[in-house]
Amino acid sequence: MGSFSIWHWLIVLAIVVMVFGTKKLRNLGSDLGGAVKGFKDGVKDGSTDPAEPAVPPSSAHVAHSSNAADKAPIDVETKTRS
């Protein structure tokens, strides 16, 4: 009764496939894979330093010019490119 041989595992696999069916097992596998991916993404996002505030990408790079007219506040949403 020690370890299981390959034949024991094949019989168990055949019984599981007969009980649940291949479609249900495929859905279960994809759901499990999605959960693992979400967990890894959550762990990766949670590893950043919470004391350092996140900078949104739209305001990350601000161009500075020496013109006096360019130093006035500009509404970025209404300005169009020429």
Results as ranks from 00 to 15, higher is better:
residue 3 S to R: 07
residue 29 G to L: 10
residue 2 G to M: 00
residue 59 S to G: 14
residue 60 A to L: 02
residue 60 A to F: 04
residue 82 S to L: 05
residue 44 K to H: 09
residue 65 S to F: 06
residue 76 V to S: 01
residue 40 K to R: 13
residue 24 K to A: 14
residue 41 D to M: 10
residue 10 L to V: 00
residue 5 S to L: 06
residue 43 V to F: 12
residue 78 T to A: 00
residue 32 L to G: 03
residue 12 V to W: 13
residue 55 V to G: 02
residue 11 I to R: 14
residue 29 G to F: 14
residue 20 F to E: 14
residue 31 D to T: 12
residue 46 G to I: 02
residue 66 S to Q: 03
residue 40 K to I: 15
residue 23 K to W: 13
residue 66 S to K: 03
residue 37 K to M: 13
residue 37 K to N: 13
residue 68 A to D: 10
residue 13 L to R: 09
residue 64 H to R: 11
residue 78 T to N: 05
residue 80 T to K: 05
residue 45 D to T: 12
residue 45 D to W: 08
residue 78 T to L: 02
residue 30 S to C: 15
residue 1 M to E: 10
residue 44 K to W: 11
residue 39 F to C: 07
residue 49 D to H: 04
residue 36 V to I: 07
residue 77 E to D: 03
residue 20 F to L: 13
residue 15 I to P: 04
residue 19 V to H: 11
residue 64 H to M: 07
residue 52 E to A: 00
residue 39 F to A: 07
residue 79 K to E: 04
residue 2 G to T: 04
residue 32 L to Y: 13
residue 60 A to R: 05
residue 62 V to Y: 02
residue 57 P to Y: 00
residue 17 V to P: 12
residue 63 A to Q: 08
residue 50 P to T: 06
residue 26 R to E: 12
residue 25 L to M: 08
residue 55 V to A: 03
residue 69 A to H: 01
residue 28 L to D: 13
residue 24 K to W: 15
residue 33 G to N: 11
residue 55 V to C: 06
residue 73 P to A: 01
residue 45 D to R: 11
residue 13 L to Q: 14
residue 47 S to W: 03
residue 45 D to G: 11
residue 6 I to P: 09
residue 32 L to N: 07
residue 28 L to Q: 13
residue 46 G to Y: 01
residue 4 F to L: 08
residue 56 P to Y: 03
residue 73 P to W: 04
residue 75 D to M: 05
residue 75 D to W: 06
residue 49 D to S: 05
residue 9 W to F: 08
residue 56 P to Q: 01
residue 2 G to F: 04
residue 3 S to P: 07
residue 13 L to K: 09
residue 77 E to P: 05
residue 23 K to V: 15
residue 37 K to A: 15
residue 14 A to K: 07
residue 4 F to P: 02
residue 66 S to G: 07
residue 75 D to C: 02
residue 41 D to V: 08
residue 52 E to Q: 01
residue 52 E to V: 01
residue 44 K to T: 10
residue 17 V to L: 08
residue 35 A to T: 10
residue 18 M to S: 12
residue 1 M to W: 07
residue 71 K to L: 07
residue 28 L to W: 15
residue 51 A to N: 04
residue 15 I to H: 06
residue 63 A to S: 10
residue 50 P to N: 03
residue 58 S to Q: 09
residue 46 G to M: 02
residue 20 F to G: 09
residue 47 S to K: 01
residue 81 R to M: 05
residue 60 A to Y: 00
residue 53 P to T: 02
residue 72 A to P: 13
residue 33 G to C: 12
residue 37 K to Q: 08
residue 74 I to E: 00
